[in-house]
Amino acid sequence: MAAEIKVGDKAPDFTLEDQDKNPVTLSSFQGKKNVVLAFYPLDWSPVCTNENTCFSNDLPKFDHANAVVFGISTDSVWSHKAWKENLKLKHNLLSDIKRKVCQDYGLFIPEANINKRATVIVDKSGIVRYVKVQEILTARDDNEILKALEQLK
């Protein structure tokens, strides 16, 4: 497994399917938008539910910061689809079911077979500008992420 991703690294490119089985490629946003990769452990869990609901509610703020938000977990596209519909989420969820992306970013927890709770901001040139890995039961703070995005303007 790769070392944990850090600020200044070139973000490993990837293509993952969203909840509608549409491919999403990280490098397709280069030169256009900053990308917030919100790695979270599991659909349907309490902390992840609250976090992703907050992301959806704050989406206009992320749009204003010229950023797109993707939730990423090792759950299937079908789980993502059901969870997104159930919560009425507005952002897309990417399925890393093969665990390749979380391993490439050094965010895989082998003994649990899931990824860590982590936020990675990739700027328009494909460089990692912000990384925060959190305790698995600690929710992230959207305001902190938005503040980091403001620095990129």
Rank of each mutant, 00 (worst) to 15 (best):
T25F: 13
K32G: 13
K90T: 14
V24D: 08
W78S: 07
P60C: 10
D75C: 07
L94A: 10
V69E: 06
N34I: 09
A82T: 08
K84M: 02
P23S: 01
K84W: 05
L89C: 03
G31M: 01
V47W: 02
F39M: 07
K88Y: 03
D20W: 07
V35E: 08
D43E: 13
D63L: 04
D58G: 04
N57M: 10
H64C: 05
T53P: 02
K21F: 11
F29P: 08
E17F: 04
F62C: 03
D96Q: 00
V47G: 01
G31W: 06
V69Q: 02
F62V: 08
S73V: 00
A38I: 08
T49V: 08
E85D: 15
K61I: 00
P23A: 09
C48A: 11
P41F: 01
L59W: 10
P23M: 05
K61L: 14
N50V: 11
W83C: 13
V24F: 12
C54F: 12
G31V: 00
P46H: 10
S45L: 03
L93K: 00
C54Q: 14
G71I: 05
K90G: 07
H80K: 09
T74Q: 13
K32D: 14
S45Y: 02
D63Q: 15
D63G: 08
